[in-house]
Design a protein around this nucleic acid. Sequence first.
RNA 1: GGCCCCUUGGUGUAAUUGGUUAACACAUCGCCCUUUCAAGGCGAAGAGUACGGGUUCAACUCCCGUAGGGGUCACCA
Length: 498
Amino acid sequence: MSNKKPRVRFAPSPTGYLHVGGLRTALYNYLFAKKNGGKFILRIEDTDQNRFVEGAVDNLIETLNWVGLEYDEGPNKEGSVGPYFQSERLDIYKKHAEQLIAHGDAYQCFCTTERLTELREKQQRAKLPQAKYDKLCLHLSKEETEKNLTEGKPHIVRLNVKGGDNVIINDIVRDRVEFTRDVIDDQVLIKTDGFPTYHLANVVDDYLMGITHVIRGEEWLTSTPKHILLYNAFGWELPTFAHLPLLLNADRSKLSKRQGDVAVEDYKAKGYLKEALLNFVALLGWSTSENEEFFNLDDLIEKFSLERVHKAGAIFNVEKLDWINAEHLRKKDKSEILEMLKVELAESKYKDLELKDEYLLLIIEAMLERVSFVKEYIDNSPYFFERPTSYDETVIKKRWKDDSVDLLQKYIQKLSLLDNPTKEDFEIALKQVAEEAECGAGRIIHPARVATSGVGIGPGVYDLLFILGKDEVIVRINDALKVIPEIKERINQQKQNT
RNA sequence: GGCCCCUUGGUGUAAUUGGUUAACACAUCGCCCUUUCAAGGCGAAGAGUACGGGUUCAACUCCCGUAGGGGUCACCA
């Protein structure tokens, strides 16, 4: 397969949502394909009828589209090796299972679930190293098997694991992994309902779909020997394997729902950028020799290699994700942020406000360095969208002085004389008032900020005042002057009482 | 428990594949800048590479053992 263009696949089972670990697997597959001019295929592993989830496939595809991992072949994008739903390939698996049976590499098994359970319990009680099927049905005579079949007895098909050499996996990430054959169970290939198990289906499909590299999570490593036995039984050339390290919870167990968000859509809903998610997840188990950290998708395609994927599992550290998200957000064009902010606003309580683009752009400019998420433009500075509903008491306590009322009155008086003040005009006016009152500018800056925004933090005051505009500033300060002195008075009272 | 995988600061990783004061980033702390908060700049603390043996002039890098963690042992994927 050395000269062939690689064909890789992401083969999730549609359980409802895309797991971030799945996203990382999909990404590595995608990057490997794009890097090497190959094809990235999406195959739906829906062979478990019990786990059918309505709408799961659509949701999965939607999420994949959202992050921008476009597949070359898959559902709704037929190539020449479809269908891409395993549930639509049942006859293919059946045919292949029959072929295996004919060659003695598989056999029908009529054992009941009860017997199997009992067998397993007995083996466990006997403290056998490993519970395995006892091959009872392998020794059924041809006649018995035929009889059972014609009687319509429920049955499954099992892989017939024979003795022989150790099974060796050559893996790009883990080099060489070796298993003795006695640890390999006679794996179920076809279930009673006629559906194949993962093991049969993935081998048959990977071969038929021309998959050259199987890139998947480490949880598959121990079942890979079964797959290799199947390839051998069919006489097929093995694909190259690459088993990826797991994504972990903070306690180093496999990343799970219980310990935080696990679905890509959860992160999307929280406002993470797709660029940040991909960038972050790419770094969980892979790095460049320079240890660079900021990448967009094109960078990743250029730099990625499976050889630099490493072996140990990685903890999914949200703090770092947050930082990467902020980095990506700051590098975006203001116009792009504007569009995202509009979407965010449309879903907020300010959805009925009519806000001009120039106004939003001013906010974006002023807040850019202060936000890590688009929604923070709203959450961190609601005062751009509504008048303060309260005033931060700790700020009042610290910044509101006896002369604040007087200074602010003088300031708005001065402002009222200005015609279309620029940002600089707001500054000049404020400094004039300070000079005339023979006090520092801070004496006005801080009260002006709380009075107009209700809080003590935010962009530069002159930005704040300019963006709000002269009229609004005057209204807000007048409003504030009616209530802040009372708050201050109350705070002073409390102080005396304690 | 059997089998398999893994092990560099709290976290993600780097270390020209045996020669570095073990590097970078996130997080933390401090200082500077800004009369706010961030961002940014500078700096600090934090691992001597899980542990123990070897091999070697030299080991994070090779070998053996131990420990710890994880994965897997379904008619789920």
